[in-house]
Amino acid sequence: MTTMGTEQLFEQFKARAEGVSAEVHRYASESEAVAFVLRFLQDEGAADAPQGYALWAGGPLRDRIDHDVASTVAGLKLAVSRELAADARVGISQVEWGLANTGTLVQDSTAVDQRLVSSLPAIHIAFVPTDSILPDMGALLTKVDPQKMGYITMITGPSRTADIERVLTIGVHGPERLVIVCVDDMEPDGR
């Protein structure tokens, strides 16, 4: 088998993720990606009220943005708690890897905040470095170490069920929308 380049991996990842109802976007730089998310929040009418705001869990990208600017964005909170997450409409996080052949996101979510923002809100937005899209789970094995990561999460599309009459229904306990933002030029964070 010939090894796939970043472009091919991205294309496959996008197709497979969209195949399971995820939304996939791609931006060249971090600032463009962040701008997209802020626009997204605005379009969604994010506001500080319960069931109206977004919660952004810690991570390299969040920590790099200008917090003074972020704090002026309506309906965006940068501190996560269980109570806040339970009432958030949007959860934002950064994941480490993508898997092309299944359209999957993979994250070291040992920190519970990461899980709270990606499981309780109705919308989950996930940043992923485009060049961290791996071909498949086999390739992932060389990257993850359960000894160092207490809780590894894989996410493939939004939450779903077919438990009533086998009818596929999106959004049971987890998010009903998964918005993936691939960033080409993500700064290395010492991983």
């Binding site: 299944t102 920190a111 207490g150 590894i152 894989m154 493939t156 987890g174």
Partner: peptide, 14 residues
Amino acid sequence: LLTSYVSIITGPTP
């Protein structure tokens, strides 16, 4: 192709 969620849990986390 894969279930929506896979959790790999190794010991307790905070």
